[in-house]
Design a protein around this nucleic acid. Structure first.
Length: 113
RNA sequence: UGAGUAGUACAGAUGGUCGCAGCUGCAAGCGCCGAAAGGCCGCAGUUGAGGAAAGUCCGGGCUUCACAGGGCAGGAUGCCAGAUAACGUCUGGUGGAGGCGACUCCAAGGACAGUGCAACAGAAAUAUACCGCCAGAUUUCCGCGUCAGGCGGAAGGCUGGUAAGGGCGGAAGGGCAGUGUAAGAGACUACCGCGCAGCUGGCAACAGCUGCGGCACAUGUAAACCCCAUCCGAAGCAAGACCAAAUAAGGGAGCGUUACGGUUGCCCGCCGUGCUUUCAGGUAGGUCGCUGGAGCCUGCUGGCGACAGCAGGAUCAGAUAGAUGAUCAUCACGCGCAGAUGUGCGGACAUAACCCGGCUUACGGACUGCUCAUAUU
RNA sequence: GGAGUGGUAUCGAAGUGGUCAUAACGAGCCGCACUCGAAAUGCGGUUGUCCGUUCCGGGCACGUGGGUUCGAAUCCCACCCACUCCG
C-alpha cells in the first residue's frame, strides 16, 4: 500500500530495528515505537498480535490504526520509522477513541508539528 | 396459541466526503527507482469477500517428479441399485432402532477360513457338577419284626446320572409349553427362532410361501489380527516455468568408483552422478502460474429422485507483510424509554490466497409445508 | 497457504484394552535426622476437584464431547488448545 504522505514498513528486519531502540510510549490501547530512518519520509508499521482476536478483529484494528495515522500524517515530523502495536484493550473501540490514543502517543514522542 | 419436525431464501439499503487495490481507456518524458530483469508516477471510468471465505476431514482438476517390470507390505471404503469428473458425498430402496406422530438415526459384508482376547466373580467361559434333584452299593444309628433271613426311616462319606431349579456373570451349550423319565435332557411333539433346499415377486439387497433338518458346526469381540469384494504412484501453487545478476541460493580440506541420490514404505531390478568430512556468515530480485469454471440464472424435455440433455441469458475479487476502510446523513428492521411526532441503543458467526464438488463445525433473525396438544367455530 | 507432532498430579514424564489411577519414575513441597546454623545427603509423608465431613469414606477426573466394547487414558469419529517444519 502506498499513501500520499507516508510509506509502510514491510520486512521483519525493519520492525526489529525499530523495536531494538526501545524508544516507546504506551497507553491502554496502543504501544508506539519510534526510530529515525535517515530519510525525509515517514514509514508506518502496524502490528496486531494473534492473541488480540481472530482475523476479522485484527484486520479491523489494523485499518483503524492506519486510518488514524493517515488523517494525521500531514502533521507528523518527517524522517521517522514508527511501529504501532495494538493492545487487547483496543478491541471493540471506535475510530475516534483510536485517533485520540494515536495523537496522545505522537505528542508523547513530540512528533507532531 | 404452544411444542415439535422438514425445508427455503437472505446476510440491511441509498447518497455525500476522504482513502486503498485491480482492470480498461486516454495521456505522459529522452521522467523517476534499479546492477539488470523489471517496476513506478497523472486523469477518468469501472469492479472489489462468505454461507460458511473456517477446520483442512474426504474427492477431483492442475503442476513437477516417477512411470520396463516383479514381489511383499501399506491405506481407504463396506446392505442393494443408481447419480457423478470423482468421493468416505448425494438420491431411491431393503433391513434394523427411536418417536403418539410429522419424521429422524444406523462403520448395517464375514465370528461354520484361521488365530487371539474375555479381568473380577463363579464349580465351570467353550468347557463344567458347588448347592440341588435322582439311582446304586455300603457304614452307622433308630423303629418294626423274626428261630434266622428281613422290612421301613434318618444321617455320613463313596460311585454314577442330570443341566429342569438355585447361585456367579455382560455372556452358562436355542425359547416356551407338553409328552416322557429314577431324576432329567430336542430323547420325542406343537408353535416361535435358526440352518438348508425349492417355488413365487423383485435388476438386487430382500420379502412371502412350502418342505426338510431335531439343532450336531451355533457366547461375545472384526472401531483385535484377519478373510472377502472394490479402489489407491508420490508430493503439493512455498507445486512449478521463465528472466536477471554473480566476491558467496556457499567456501576449505581429503579420498578415489567403494558409494550416494532418485524411483511409493521395503526388497529385487532400473536410472542418474563424483563422493566423503569439516566450517561460517549473511543475502535471497523480477515476471508468469492467477482466474471463464465438471461454474451461475431462466425455461422446456426425460427421470419417483440425485441428475442429465437442449435452448436462451448474465459474467466485474485476484492482494503478495497481504486491498474492500473511515466518517456523515436519510430510510428500513429489532429492543428500551417517552408515549401520535421524538429519542437512545443494537445487528450474529466469520476475512478469499491456485481452482472446483462435498463433509464437519460456528452463527442471526425471517418465511413456508407438515405433525401433535389445547382452545374456539 | 500447506505439511506434521503432542495434550496424564504444581512441573517433567511412564502407562497403549481389565481387579491400572496405590497415577510408576524423577523434580517440587512438608516433616524428621545430621549441623552452631544452612546447603548437600539419608529416611518418611503429601499430592487434583466435588460431596458428606473428626479420623476417614465415596463420587468425578488422563484436553472436550460422542461412539464401539461386559469393560476405554488406551480403539474409532468430531471439536478445542499448544508447538514444530517449508523457499
Amino acid at each position: 500500500m502506498k499513501y500520499e504522505n507516508f510509506e509502510t514498513l514491510k520486512k521483519n528486519s525493519d520492525f526489529r530495528r525499530v523495536y531494538s531502540r526501545r524508544r516507546s510510549f504506551a497507553n491502554k490501547y496502543l504501544i508506539m515505537y519510534v526510530l529515525e530512518n535517515g530519510t525525509d519520509t515517514v514509514r508506518l508499521g502496524v502490528s496486531v498480535s494473534k492473541k488480540v482476536g481472530n482475523s476479522i478483529v485484527r484486520h479491523r484494528l489494523a485499518r483503524l490504526i492506519r486510518e488514524a495515522f493517515r488523517l494525521n500524517s500531514g502533521n507528523v515530523k518527517r524522517g521517522m520509522d514508527i511501529v504501532v502495536v495494538a493492545r487487547d484493550g483496543l478491541k471493540g473501540k471506535s475510530y475516534y477513541e483510536t485517533e485520540e490514543a494515536m495523537i496522545y502517543l505522537l505528542n508523547q514522542h513530540k512528533l507532531l508539528l
